[in-house]
Design a protein around this nucleic acid. Sequence first.
DNA 1: ATCATCTAGTTCGATTTCGAACAACTAGTT
DNA 2: AACTAGTTGTTCGAAATCGAACTAGATGAT
Lengths: 171, 171
Amino acid sequence: MVKKASTHWLSDAEQATWRHYVTVSTVVSRMLDRELKEQHELSSEDYGILAMLSEAPDHQLRFRELGAALRLPKPFLTYRFQRLEQQGLVERRECGTDGRGAFAAVTEAGFDAIEAAAPTHVAGVRRFIFDHLDDQEMHLLGELMAKISAGIDADVCPTTTATGAEECSDG
Amino acid sequence: MVKKASTHWLSDAEQATWRHYVTVSTVVSRMLDRELKEQHELSSEDYGILAMLSEAPDHQLRFRELGAALRLPKPFLTYRFQRLEQQGLVERRECGTDGRGAFAAVTEAGFDAIEAAAPTHVAGVRRFIFDHLDDQEMHLLGELMAKISAGIDADVCPTTTATGAEECSDG
DNA sequence: ATCATCTAGTTCGATTTCGAACAACTAGTT
DNA sequence: AACTAGTTGTTCGAAATCGAACTAGATGAT
């Protein structure tokens, strides 16, 4: 049975696109996770946390910002951060201006850890994604993802200026 | 510091592409999961299982095939299937020709369940992805994903004819 | 100042996730 | 037949995941 192009079904082309997308996102995330965990004892969320903090001013961010940027549910960030803390890769810092919150900061050891893990991560991203695309296709993919991402942001929280991803996520 | 286009780093464009990709795949999967679970008590893996079985000849597949097609780790499929069994949406059937294995099959109730859930799922896929793309972009995305998916298959299991996804996944 | 309301992060607990080891069977070899 | 190797699916257990409820502090209104 051929699907109609109505609102209630996916067209055959959409269906095919969706299936390929699901396959890719499933396999890529699982593979990267596995490699990172096996070789560096880090989940890809851990990697994201360390990377984000490493690039932030003073190597620190409010938990709220970190969670929003990485789209991590709050309890999950708390849990992941604790694990990293136990490994000495991150630390908490008081926030003078807001007694509720705290800063999440990456330590020297955390810096070393992410530098050590980066090649694995980069190699994985290359091997699973970019190696299969030429330069033009890579740029195209970037544009499509940017567009979808922006669309979702506008959709989910229409009030935001859509500069980054500071809002929503959960709460 | 500007990243070199060497093998060991991602170029700025690759970096940007990758980040958008991660955002999209994180948000989309979480949102779809949430909607499906809230409205129909199904995880998106459950949905995949039911959909795959519904389309299969005799509405049944070997566990191996089902798992390979959906890229689900074996113990995970066993677990998920049990849940669906308890809900009466799927059932096991003996496999005459191979005493080790069994067929996974969808029941009438399972059929009804997926028909009920499909509109939610389709609406979500539309809202999160296709609504933000025009027709040409949708086709483009499909091609890119197909290419990546095929590349990964060839990469991970170079022996396969790459017709489908019958091999690998885990063991 | 007091109260209601909002926000930041944490704690709890039920469920999910999945690698490793396993039991049951098949297939191929001698 | 007996033995080895490979496959199918399950069990086990440790860890991850995350909604809901919570504590503590900020913010705004009266």
